[in-house]
């Protein structure tokens, strides 16, 4: 394995490590839960993508074959990280977690809390007064 390929792999690994570290520092240092959701969702996922790209280069050039597992891990994380962040933001709205003083439009929290899950059409007899889809 030549020096240039090792340099490329090291670059991707170090960039990935720096992004993961920045995500964790943001998780520790930011003020608010809603602000704190940004750091692990974006920076840590991007850092893990860097580590996975470095690993893929290494497995291709040192072992001589391409494994599809890195692509699967990348695809899975890119799909699932926004889903987790969305569910955690909904939980935080539901439990009325305190937000910062200068949060804009805080009255929209009540609007978001009022939204119901879509009801099943058959059990209209149970909840007549809720806003079911007729």
């Amino acid at each position: 394995m030549s020096f240039a390929i090792e340099l490329v792999i090291s670059f991707f690994l170090i960039v990935g490590g720096i992004f993961v570290l920045v995500g964790s520092i943001g998780l520790l240092r930011l003020k608010d839960l809603y602000v704190r959701l940004h750091a692990p969702t974006k920076a840590t996922t991007l850092g893990l993508g860097g580590v996975l790209i470095g690993s893929m280069f290494y497995m291709h050039y040192a072992q001589g074959y391409i494994t599809i597992n890195e692509l699967l891990i990348t695809l899975f994380l890119v799909i699932t990280a926004p889903v987790t962040a969305h569910i955690l933001a909904k939980v935080a709205l539901h439990h009325r977690v305190k937000m910062m003083q200068r949060t804009r439009n805080p009255h929209h929290v009540e609007t978001a809390r009022m939204q119901q899950a879509p009801q099943v059409l058959e059990d209209k007899s149970k909840d007549k007064d809720s806003n079911t889809i007729k």
Binding site: L27, A92, H95
Partner: peptide
């Protein structure tokens, strides 16, 4: 809050 703890646990999984 407990949501902070879930978020930290998810980040620990990724790390």
């Amino acid at each position: 809050h407990v949501v902070d703890r879930i978020l930290a646990l998810d980040t620990m999984y990724i790390n």
